[in-house]
Design a binder for these strands. Structure first.
Lengths: 241, 241
DNA sequence: GACTAGAGGATTGTTGAACGATACGACAAG
DNA sequence: CTTGTCGTATCGTTCAACAATCCTCTAGTC
């Protein structure tokens, strides 16, 4: 194994604190985390649909990791609520109930509205909201409906980021990750996402002029409508069988 | 190790659906979860103070479980933010920074205030809030300051439960569990908790008459004050060092 | 024929051991 | 005092094994 290369590393005479931001960069990840990354992607892609069982043996040999490591990865995803773990039966891709969808939107409404309510002047971080709106409009122009969907997620993530709380950010990441499990049921992402583009820009406008409660009202209306659409589609799909 | 659930377990003679609530009771737990329970308790007790290292070998042989199982338990607690995991170095009891404390109170303010704001009539679940107030008053009478502290936690948990969202409930559980890591620095729990008893009753009163925004204001003031006290104590302790 | 009981196979739960990789402390050399 | 080297303790990961549990399929009973 090669040790440190003496000549290539330049010494910066800056005091400690300046380097702390770089620590995240050299933080390596364990095998379990990388496995979890892979599985997370596959689930989001729909390769493992909700309800699918992930057998330790199959996945483990498929990915070339031991059962123990794989179990650690499973645990990570279970805590993200992407998988459910049934004792002695194995892990399954989470299947959201209608109650779950309702609760997810309950949380979104609580968090997102609270994040914008107090605004009375253009807050720091508003640029990221604007970026997400532009991202969505660009995706629409390119008829990239999947891209439109992710742009919408970015928009709402940027909204909650206005609260300025790492923990709220993480909560929102998890909420949206859960919701992605259910977005698959939307047969026509265009019809689902496209109407919200205008709303998003409108909300952005309110925020930019410091009208927090105006933004909140629009947001609440949006969330109610989206939830309704989703619940409808969900109910229909389950009755269709 | 008995995790007594004070909530009354009432038997409903209804078919099928009524039994679903009981599933949690007979859900067996894996060894890893039970180990996590034990460690969680020990951490809350202060046996493992913040910063302490939990060596796999020591703890594992101490508890009589294998390293693999113990690692699963560690992961559970790491995801609850009670432990931090440093690659190739091990797991440590989390040490909260002042920024962490600030963020925890930011989240509390966001969530708790949102949970009571919308109230315009006595909401379902208000009894549990009342129970927590009574619990605190009883603890005070018995000069049980530790009990007063947990009663206070119950009060705020009951408040957030008014939102009626399982995910918000869980968020709050995690937030308060993290805060417990820092409550240890309060040298005098009596002086810290006692003044809040009156405030709690006052907040309960507002809720009982359906005055949500009144409750919200009191709550916000309480949280600001508590945070300030905690940050002061924390800063002092770290400078004393 | 429908239902219950039980045997057998498959999968998970948990353990123990092993080996490489990494971090930390000690010690010697400059 | 700093730097390089080394040894030890610990972690990361894998493997193999066995016990516990679940699922399915068969066989028997009514």
């Amino acid at each position: 194994m090669s040790t440190a290369v003496p000549g290539s590393v330049r010494q910066l005479p800056l005091p400690g604190r300046a380097l702390e931001a770089d620590r995240a960069l050299l933080a390596r990840t364990s095998t379990a985390e990388r496995v979890a990354d892979v599985l997370r992607t596959r689930i989001a892609e729909g390769l493992f649909p909700p309800g699918a069982r992930l057998a330790e043996d199959t996945i483990g040999s498929g990915l070339g990791v031991s059962r123990n490591t794989l179990r650690e990865a499973f645990q990570l995803l279970t805590h993200e609520r992407l998988l459910t773990h049934e004792l002695n039966r194995g892990v399954f891709v989470r299947m959201l109930t209608i109650d779950d969808v309702a609760d997810l939107y309950r949380v979104r409404k609580l968090v997102e509205c609270a994040a914008v309510r107090g605004i009375d002047s253009p807050p720091p971080g508003v640029e990221r909201v604007a970026d997400a709106v532009v991202e969505g409009e660009r995706a629409k122009k390119q008829l990239d409906w999947q891209g439109l969907g992710t742009a919408n997620l970015h928009f709402h993530q940027a909204l909650t980021a206005l609260a300025g709380s790492p923990r709220v950010d993480e909560l929102m990441r998890r909420i949206l990750a859960e919701l992605r499990l259910v977005f698959h049921v939307m047969a026509d992402p265009r019809r689902f996402y496209e109407p919200y583009l205008a709303t998003n820009r409108e909300i952005l406008g309110r925020i930019e002029v410091g009208d927090g409660s105006g933004a909140e009202q629009l947001l609440a209306a949006y969330l109610d409508k989206a939830q309704e659409q989703l619940v409808d589609a969900y109910a229909q799909r389950t009755t269709d069988g």
